[in-house]
Amino acid sequence: MNDQTKVGNGRSQPGAWSFYRVKNKIIFPLLKHIPLWIVVLTTVFPIYFALTTSLKTNLEYSINKTLPSASPTLENYTQILMQPNFYVWVRNSAVLMLSVAILSIVIGALAAFAFSQMKFAGQNVLLQVLLSLLVFPTIVLAIPLFVIFAQLHMINALPAVIIIYLGVTAPFTLFILTGFFRTMPNEILDAARIDGSSKMQLIRHILLPLTMPALITVAIVNANFVWNELLIAVIFLQGQEVKTLMSGISAFGRFGVLDVPRVMASLVLASLPMIIIYIVGQKSFIKGMTAGALHG
């Protein structure tokens, strides 16, 4: 096909290995791979570095920073997994992540149902106001919330942070779910109404199964947000027994411990849940993450 177009242009040469043929069919396509490979290598290198370094002893790292270990060891991982602190951090992060992922879609689905399937005074204004809340940076909320929760003696309390995360994720949750619920066909809902189903049954038996993909996407994005969140976690959960994984390992940064291989092992462990979710649910994950950019 390419040849024909070139004949049409009068640029083609008759020989099978003419200059144009080599240039257009071999060199040019290869050229296009070069920038992609440069990007792939710079993307992969830090990940490669973290993985290979996590399998080295500190001694080996001091003399070999770039090549994979000559004698890989899981020592760093076992050392981390033997630390009781690490379990506490993982447990706290998991509790926050699961509570927020589940509760956010429950309260979000209820509100999204009202906004998409019911009619009430001030509906559009209220929805606009709620969706607009996502422009406010977390730090703006964190300062007064700290004072409020300090006065209530709720610093270092996981429930307080669950409430904050539910608020921070609410505009995004509402945005996605309202959009989805509006695409529900009217006929199904009408049929359910004629049957005399209550609105709760409507949600349970019709809306929820139909909107499962959207709910899972939102739950994944919110879980991801909570697992990775640092600002709220650092301010509101300072005690050793309530720290999250991210705030716990952040002490391993620039001014922290000097055992780089062990730090890298902890980073690999901390990224695992999200990488597993990425592999299992790649499609809804990418869709959710790109939509999730709306809430930062």
Binding site: P46, N224, N228, M246, I249, S250, F252, A270, S271, F285
Partner: peptide, 9 residues
């Protein structure tokens, strides 16, 4: 998809 704190550290 990597956590920002992980990337930072």
């Amino acid at each position: 998809i990597l956590p920002v704190p992980v990337v930072g550290i």
